[in-house]
């Protein structure tokens, strides 16, 4: 009896959040799905005559190669970013876990790139990597390249610049989460391992990494979601160019909806984005569940 009362109280506590979610999250998502199944464009917008077209909008995206291009670009970008960010973040976290003078202050300094608005970062990187920018200047002075590289004009280097820019933004986030993960590892584990004769490498791979696993897992998933949704950085640095080489799902969806007024196609593309993120989310939940059971 007391138990079921408690349960009802519990549900009552989450009810406001639930209503909020349904209204502000559930409704837009469902409406977006509805919008992607009808045809709303510049010519029929005002008439109210929006025919049901089923999956036609998705098929158009697929037929015109938009889906393949933007999905590939976004995934290449995301994977590239999170791998490099994670490695650098881990490196920084390990470095700053060594107690040396200034460690705390330097760690604070690294945070700056995460605090800057993405718009500003994007503009700075655009100028640094322009043909007469500082990057070419430096590379030429040390004699690594004979002529300036047109970073933002070639497809591969343009993507590289974006990955570098976003990595620079993302390192502090990775560093902080790993740092807090490191503090949860009991010091005596290392001490007893050292007594048993384990060297630094061994301690890292046998103690640090396994115990960091939950942290790493959530870090990678959060990193994936954050990176996958990239928008302003790309829009300002490359505008999706050259020739769609850095066109992301988010930037293309925006272009379809708000530039070309193909509202239904834009909705379809953002739904695909949502789907990808949901899959990632569910995989993460499965992994966490397995972790908890073990």
């Amino acid at each position: 009896m007391g138990k079921s009362k408690e349960r009802i109280a519990g549900y009552l506590f989450v009810l406001p959040a639930l209503i909020y979610m349904l209204f502000f999250v559930g409704y837009p998502v469902i409406d977006n799905i509805r919008l992607s199944l009808i045809d709303v464009n510049v010519m029929n917008f005002s008439s109210g005559d929006h025919p049901f077209v089923g999956l036609e909008n998705y098929k158009i995206l697929q037929r015109e190669g938009i889906l393949a291009t933007t999905l590939t670009n976004t995934i290449v970008y995301t994977i590239g970013c999170i791998i490099i960010q994670f490695i650098c973040g881990l490196g920084f976290a390990m470095l700053f876990s060594i107690p040396f003078r200034m460690a705390a202050r330097l760690r604070g300094l690294v945070m700056i790139s995460w605090l800057l608005p993405a718009t500003i970062t994007a503009m700075v990187f655009k100028y640094m990597f322009s043909a007469d920018g500082i990057v070419n200047e430096l590379l030429m002075q040390v004699g690594l390249i004979p002529d300036p590289i047109k970073w933002l004009v070639e497809p591969v280097t343009a993507m590289l610049v974006l990955v570098v820019a976003n990595t620079w933004i993302g390192i502090p986030f990775n560093m902080i989460l790993i740092t807090s993960g490191l503090t949860t590892i009991p010091k005596d584990l290392y001490e007893s391992a050292a007594i048993d004769g384990a060297n630094t490498m061994k301690r890292f791979f046998k103690i640090t990494l396994p115990l960091l696993k939950p942290t790493i897992l959530s870090l990678l998933v959060l990193g994936f979601i954050y990176t996958f949704r990239v928008f302003d950085l790309v829009l300002i640095t490359t505008h999706g160019g050259p020739v769609d080489a850095t066109q992301m799902m988010s930037t293309y969806a925006y272009k379809l909806s708000f530039d070309e007024f193909k509202y239904s196609q834009g909705a379809a593309l953002s739904n695909v984005m949502l789907l990808v993120l949901l899959v990632v989310g569910f995989v993460y939940m499965r992994l966490v569940n397995r972790e908890e059971k073990a």
Binding site: V14, M21, F24, V25, G26, P28, V29, I225, R229, F231, S250, S270, M273, L274, L277, L278, G281, F282, Y284, M285, N289
Partner: peptide, 21 residues
């Protein structure tokens, strides 16, 4: 409990996307 967490995560993702729009 576990199911509910699954649901909140999904909803958070959705919300994150809705925000971009």
């Amino acid at each position: 409990m576990r199911r509910f967490r699954l649901w909140t995560l999904a909803a958070t993702l959705v919300f994150a996307i809705a925000l971009t729009g």
